[in-house]
Design a protein around this nucleic acid. Structure first.
Lengths: 343, 343
DNA sequence: TTGTAGGCGTTATCAC
DNA sequence: GTGATAACGCCTACAA
């Protein structure tokens, strides 16, 4: 049942294979007589024929395959995005080829070459770095690309990200309302649009709320990891500059702060409020549950995939920059400064 | 630079395209003179030629692609397995096509048809159900299959799972040592090998440790979810049969128990010890950190992929059943029964 | 409306 | 050791 070809169907239906091809292709189906279509459909069903997509790809030079480039599948932030991507690709008859780069430019380059060699029709990229022109160059050479989660500075690429700016103001406003005046910002790596946008949002919100705007209160993390968050947070605690709350660039970074708090016997939020960003799965189960900005991960994936599908259809294409709305999710990790509970 | 073919290289090197093909294929490389090989390699490099895998696939009818069928990518148990799979497929020049079935047989069937239509060379399956002959039938028709995470009863399929039996005895022994005599077992769906193995392990360990072997103390969960775990655990609490510890089939099920404890103002482990299974990422960060049996998720993926790669090489193939070792990870969720701390 | 035939880029089987 | 040639299964002008 596996190796049937158009010719087998043609023979069974008493027509030529070219006719079968036309009858099976929705675009050309109406160019063949209804009667013949019926006979062909019947033969297809009886034989259990399925077209060979590889032969089709060779002929049409479209693989119906897209590369999905993310930092790390084991980071809980990404599986929801991937499932979002999968859900729209399914609708279009495309399949994702997923690679994890571990945010290593070399791994990324290797994987992208491999994807291109496999003739993917486009790329959905979650690893863009500012100042890196890799994807612009690929796009210039005709590769269709949609950026998700991160953008690349004023490159003419389709992108969909969360509205980090708004998220930050919501969060800072929440902390200001609780009475915090000095917030430590653990920013992400400055070569990512996400980190830059969140940092900019932090600054403008701090000013808007009239909080202390102290350069000492902003620290850059070299990576989006708990370990890095822990290291930078510990340094800040030891540094002497006072603060009563931490705004972490990412939930993972916030988790690093939790670790340091535990090590030092400090209690959150009584001794220190901690907030994250993304609302990654399971952060509602941390102790305490993490206050964070919820980013629509699944929708980011869907929207990115949709953009790419749209771009594949068109010849020339006006790039779009989509910002998806976020919501503040207040949980137990933020409270009034110095707000020790009765014991 | 993209659409170069063998003929372009051949022209540049002054040979025939057939010769280039031979020179580029490691298996036939020695059938062409070293001097010619050099010229061809040079041309390849200068032109930046990459072979078209689609044309190759059409000719050889091997896609160098494998389908990876898992229940749900957003379940943190699976990304490590997928990365394990990816790591060995990489070595062999294969790419994974990943699908999530949500443990829905219909979705599974659809996805598998799609994968086969895409001409995958084999399947790595993490969704096998006992009594389901889908995969045996596929295997009988020549599809190469490796089962991971779950097996299918005495089907002659390659499989790699954790040593659930040993894991259970370690865990039960730990609880017995703490002084527990009545353990609630929240078993998984009985149509999965994993649930059956863990349940069998539970029974034999309970007997071996001389604990109470009460049929009331075993409850089946219909799915591997926190919600299901919560529902069954709540029922058991209300049921009147006493127990001092819970052995959950899975960390996710254990998390459901945490939820019920919190709702009812009960404290773990003081009022009730809770243990999970798998050591999923992040369960060390729950409150309290979860005692569980650590399953080598990454290695399961690697081993499964390795098996499949081996099977693809051979004509007839002796199926293997691999059991990977597990370790007990004791954390804060288990303690002596009724062991309230001083306040 | 349907048949014919050429070719997508490779590999493999022949000869030479 | 190398060249010529025929598929692999499909699509698509072009003819009829």
């Amino acid at each position: 049942m596996a190796n049937l070809t158009l010719r087998d169907v043609a023979r069974a239906a008493g027509v030529h294979s070219g006719t079968v091809s036309r009858a099976l292709n929705p675009a050309t189906r109406d160019r063949v007589s209804p009667e013949t279509v019926r006979r062909i459909d019947k033969a297809v069903r009886e034989l259990g024929y399925t077209p060979n997509p590889i032969a089709r790809s060779l002929r049409t030079s479209k693989s119906h395959t897209v590369g999905v480039v993310i930092p790390d599948l084991t980071n809980p932030l990404f599986p929801p995005m991937v499932r979002g991507i999968e859900s729209v690709l399914d609708e279009y008859g495309y399949s994702p080829l997923i690679v994890s780069t571990d945010d290593d430019p070399e791994r990324e380059a290797t994987h992208i070459s491999a994807l291109l060699a496999r003739q993917v029709d486009g790329l959905i990229v979650g690893t863009a770095r500012l100042g890196d022109t890799t994807f612009d160059e690929l796009a210039a050479r005709g590769t269709r690309i949609a950026l998700i989660n991160r953008r690349a500075a004023d490159s003419g690429l389709d992108s969909v990200t969360a509205d980090d700016d708004t998220g930050m103001s919501l969060l800072i406003h929440h902390l200001a309302t609780l009475g915090h005046r000095r917030l430590l910002c653990l920013a992400g790596p400055r070569n990512t649009s996400t980190a830059v946008a969140r940092l900019r949002g932090f600054h403008s919100a701090v000013r808007a709320e009239g909080l202390d705007d102290d350069a000492q209160l902003v620290v850059e993390c070299a990576s989006w990891t708990a370990a890095e968050g822990a290291a930078r947070f510990a340094e800040a605690l030891d540094g002497g500059t006072p603060f009563t709350a931490v705004v972490a660039a990412t939930d993972l970074v916030a988790m690093g702060c939790y670790d340091v708090m535990a090590e030092r016997g400090l209690s959150c939020p009584d001794d220190m409020s901690i907030a994250g960003f993304n609302d990654m799965p399971f952060v509602n189960r941390l102790a305490p549950p993490l206050t964070t900005v919820a980013v629509p991960q699944y929708e980011i994936g869907r929207e990115g995939a949709q953009m790419l599908m749209a771009a594949l259809g068109q010849q020339e294409h006006m790039p779009r920059t989509v910002l998806l709305p976020v919501t503040l999710t207040v949980r137990g990790s933020t409270g009034a400064p110095g707000g020790h509970r009765e014991r």
